[in-house]
Amino acid sequence: MNPTVDDVLDTGYRHPRDPVELWLARQWQEVIGFAVGIRENFFELGGNSLDAARVVNAVLEELGVQLPLNVVTEHPTVESLAARLRDHNGRLADPLVEIQRGDGTAPPLFLVHPANGQVGAYAGLAQALGEDFTVFGLQAAGLYSDVDPVTSVRAMAATYVEAVRAVHPTGPYLLGGCSTGASIAHEMAALLAEDGAEVRLLALLGDGLLDLGPRFDQPPGDLVAVLDRWKELDLVPPDATTGFVSRSARVWQANEDAVRDWEPRPYSGPLDVFLGPPPDRPAFADWPSAVTREHTPPDGDVAGALRGLIG
């Protein structure tokens, strides 16, 4: 098995798995001063009652949920507090998810979801990049609501470009993706370049370099069995339901269909292709481009290779 970002870190850190856990982990990072895993105790990490009040205030300001002041004492981990908030977060289904907020010295990095539509797989990569870097994930429609998944790479790319420009209007743009996300990121880069925007990075990541989270080999038959397996592997929160498995299966199938029906449009910029150990060679390594630069990060250190490209 190829090493992943989490293997390289080897710190016991367990990354967030959904947008609520991602958002809470970011709030804790800003209050405490460093990245935290979903099961680390807020107070054992150095948080105090004033810090807890800042978290409660952030929940009220950004999510519109008034929590009691002692809520962090009762729910001292990201995982536990996320379960309290999950039913109240109306922004859960937004395509753009802020994974990590950096200091603004570098343009933000936008990473597009793999085939399962989720962006939690990029949390470990964001942490490994370092706290200087702002990292956003783009997640698929239909995971956290009953809207129909999008079945076209070009339609997804157009929607995601709009979301990206809402927070970063003028570029330059740093884009990347793994699995289905590689195709969508390529299409986004082509759209932005056609519009005269500067795309400084288009990073396409091989599947073996990241822990991509929940997967399907085929549409599931027994949703309960799939959910139990995902929980056993710690791929979903404890309060995940078979409804989430069903929506995930629809998203996965839509992404599979979208990539199958898509042909790369011409893109004049360079492709930075990240490969795992041989014989890993994903299809995008052979997409036509003026310049294709292949990288095989030593020990699976994708973050180090990305930092070198971003500068």
Score class of each variant (00 low, 15 high):
97 V>T: 14
97 V>H: 02
97 V>Q: 02
97 V>K: 00
98 E>T: 14
98 E>A: 11
98 E>V: 04
98 E>I: 02
98 E>W: 00
98 E>G: 03
98 E>P: 00
99 I>Q: 02
99 I>L: 15
99 I>C: 10
99 I>N: 07
99 I>R: 01
99 I>P: 01
101 R>P: 01
101 R>H: 08
101 R>N: 01
101 R>L: 14
101 R>Y: 00
102 G>L: 03
102 G>D: 10
103 D>W: 03
103 D>A: 09
103 D>K: 02
104 G>F: 00
104 G>H: 09
104 G>D: 00
104 G>E: 05
104 G>V: 09
104 G>I: 07
104 G>W: 04
104 G>T: 05
104 G>K: 07
105 T>G: 15
105 T>R: 15
105 T>A: 15
105 T>V: 14
106 A>F: 13
106 A>D: 10
106 A>C: 07
106 A>N: 10
107 P>N: 07
107 P>E: 10
107 P>Y: 08
107 P>I: 02
107 P>V: 06
108 P>F: 09
108 P>M: 12
109 L>S: 11
109 L>D: 10
109 L>N: 07
109 L>Y: 08
110 F>W: 05
111 L>M: 15
111 L>G: 13
111 L>C: 13
111 L>N: 12
112 V>T: 14
112 V>I: 15
112 V>K: 07
112 V>P: 05
112 V>S: 06
113 H>V: 04
113 H>G: 04
113 H>L: 05
114 P>N: 08
115 A>T: 15
115 A>Y: 12
116 N>G: 11
117 G>I: 09
117 G>N: 03
118 Q>D: 07
118 Q>R: 15
118 Q>C: 09
118 Q>V: 11
118 Q>I: 05
119 V>P: 13
119 V>Y: 14
119 V>S: 13
120 G>E: 04
120 G>N: 04
120 G>I: 06
120 G>R: 00
120 G>M: 01
121 A>N: 05
121 A>Q: 11
121 A>D: 02
121 A>Y: 01
122 Y>D: 06
122 Y>G: 08
122 Y>I: 09
122 Y>S: 12
123 A>E: 08
123 A>C: 15
123 A>Q: 08
123 A>P: 04
123 A>I: 00
124 G>C: 05
124 G>L: 12
125 L>W: 12
126 A>M: 10
126 A>V: 07
126 A>P: 02
126 A>I: 13
126 A>S: 10
126 A>C: 02
126 A>N: 02
127 Q>T: 14
127 Q>F: 01
127 Q>M: 13
127 Q>V: 15
128 A>D: 12
128 A>S: 14
128 A>C: 04
128 A>T: 03
129 L>N: 06
129 L>Y: 01
129 L>F: 03
129 L>C: 05
129 L>R: 06
130 G>A: 12
130 G>P: 06
131 E>C: 02
131 E>P: 05
131 E>W: 04
131 E>I: 08
131 E>D: 15
131 E>V: 13
131 E>Y: 04
131 E>F: 03
132 D>H: 14
133 F>I: 12
133 F>H: 15
133 F>A: 03
134 T>S: 15
134 T>I: 06
134 T>W: 09
134 T>R: 12
135 V>M: 05
136 F>A: 02
137 G>M: 11
137 G>W: 06
137 G>L: 03
137 G>A: 11
137 G>T: 11
138 L>T: 06
138 L>Q: 12
138 L>A: 10
